[in-house]
Amino acid sequence: MWTWNNLWHWAGHPLSWPGFVGMLVGAVVILLLALLVVMYSIYWQRKFIGWMQWRIGPNRVGPWGLFQTVADVLKLLVKEDVIPANVDRTLFLLAPIFAFVPAFLVLSIIPFSAHHVFTANIGIGALFYVAISAITIHGVMLGGWSSNNKWALIGGMRSAAQMLSYEVPLGMSIVGVVLMAGTLNLNGIIAAQMHTVWYVIPQILGFIVFVIAGTAEMNRTPFDLPDAESELVGGYHVEYSGFRFAFFMLTEYVYLLAMGGLMATLFFGGWAGPFLPGWLWFAIKIFIFFTFQFWLQATLPRIRQDQMMSFSWKLLLPLALANLVITAVVKVLV
């Protein structure tokens, strides 16, 4: 028996046409939401960093430059699609898709509000995120490899090494939260935090590991080695232009959104908060995460490849493991 209810709670029911349409609508809405957020997060990045550097940032297109990123995106979309002569054509065309599809996929489990209106309420949410986001590495690596460009190759190689080695502490830091909440379901984790405190307090060690590993995972400053502009002149996407480049760009910022959502969910109680509606709380928490990332970007120099690797394996991973052990022990004792 079909009711309006199983349009939004389709996971527990057999697939039906209205349910399928509902999924499609949900996916499109999330896609548009992500695009909008990406556009204005880039705008906010340029404004915020500009203010810290005594500049005023974008100010020409639209009032206060509000349409600057829209114009940039339009420019990228209508640009000539250049495919260099000696690239591995198939992989070159596939790489942006490999990078960008998982970025949108992980959004499907982020609980933007108390009810999973447009996203999926699956039981293994946290695991799903880590698993799907790992696919992006292939896109970046293939992009670097297939470009037939030495800079892109080094960028892709660095990127693979970096994302692989930071995946591990990232996953380990999430396990601490999962242990405390007793569930992998993201909404379940939020619910568990509503009974106690935000997990950022008991899981402070895990939180620090998560933020550092997450920053590295997103290739953001100070871990922006794969596209280190002053060394690799752009890194893995140096040969890409037009909308293929836009895909890589989009991937980067959608991950920023997803990682912000994941962090808010795991450590800051997600959509939960007094007075304001849930989606607004979620937006505020993600906004703060964005601002923090841009703040780092404005301040810090880039870390070196070998230092970055040893930092992950020799410091972050032991920290994450220690956090895991402490959490487990405390959980058993209390």
């Binding site: 960093i49 550097q53 005594w54 100070p222 922006d224 404005a298 301040t299 810090l300 120099p301 880039r302």
Partner: peptide, 9 residues
């Protein structure tokens, strides 16, 4: 070295 802001200051 990858830090942008000191340049502008």
């Amino acid at each position: 070295l990858g830090a942008m802001t000191p340049f502008l200051y």
